Simulated scan of single mutants.
Amino acid sequence: MYHWEREVDPVLSIECLDPVPPKPRLAPEEILRRIGEMAKLPRRKTDLYYPMQNGVKDRVGFNVFEPVRYPGALVKQTYWPACFQLEDDEALIIETEIPARAPYWNVQLNDPYFNALEYVYRLSSTNGAMARLSSDGKFRAVIALTDPGVPNWLDPAGYNEGGIYGRWYDCDSEPVPTITRVRLAELRSHLPEDTPVVTPAERSEEIRRRVAACQRRRRW
């Protein structure tokens, strides 16, 4: 589901053609075993994802993207993770070219522990179907703790540090975005002159529509 407001998730059902007997009643011992396995999941995921995010910071530091491609089922997808850092009175400008063929791309913010930030009531993510490109065809997003009044605000939900995860899927090129750290008061001098102003009323409407769209979107 690329454009949350305009698209509707498909509903699929898989029917087994062979006879399927009713599920048997679980014995108490089996219930306890399954609960034990379920309790291990948060630890396994923490052991996997936390080092991934810390690894980026250890290798390239803050505010630098480190593209990575995984084998297997994700071979068509290139990720561009980074660890962001900014002060309350600063902003981070993410800038990139967009591939000529780009079936799907997105960018989202995570907290320092690799949890996705609140994305229903906050503008902590965007994608190729919802983002607004600059007049020169580039994508520019701004991470700032307060609304900077420009398109593609990525709200870090009060975090001065966290993670960024972007994706190019099956694109004909894989540009590496840049991050520029600037004073929030000087933000517009680092953006194209024709960058639109997003008023508080327009931002409120943007979030209202996002909330309504998320209510129809499948939650994973």
Rank of each mutant, 00 (worst) to 15 (best):
P28C: 05
M52R: 15
Q53E: 15
L41H: 07
V68D: 11
A73T: 01
F62G: 03
D47L: 09
N63R: 02
V75A: 05
A82H: 06
G36M: 06
R69G: 07
K57E: 06
P42I: 09
R43E: 12
F84L: 04
P51M: 11
E37V: 01
V64M: 05
E66D: 14
P42W: 14
A39T: 09
P67I: 14
D47H: 03
L41Y: 04
R34S: 10
G61Q: 07
G55Y: 15
L86P: 07
Y79R: 08
P81Q: 15
T46P: 03
A39D: 11
V64A: 03
V64Y: 09
P51F: 02
Q53V: 05
L86K: 01
D58F: 06
V56C: 02
P67A: 12
Y50P: 01
L86E: 05
V56I: 05
A82C: 04
G61D: 01
C83H: 10
D47I: 08
L41Q: 10
R34K: 12
E30T: 12
Q53A: 10
Q85M: 11
K45E: 15
V60M: 04
L86Y: 12
F62S: 08
G36D: 00
E30P: 01
Y50R: 13
Q53S: 12
G72D: 03
G36F: 13
K57Y: 08
P67N: 03
L74M: 03
V56A: 00
V75Y: 01
P28Q: 05
T46R: 15
R59H: 12
G72I: 04
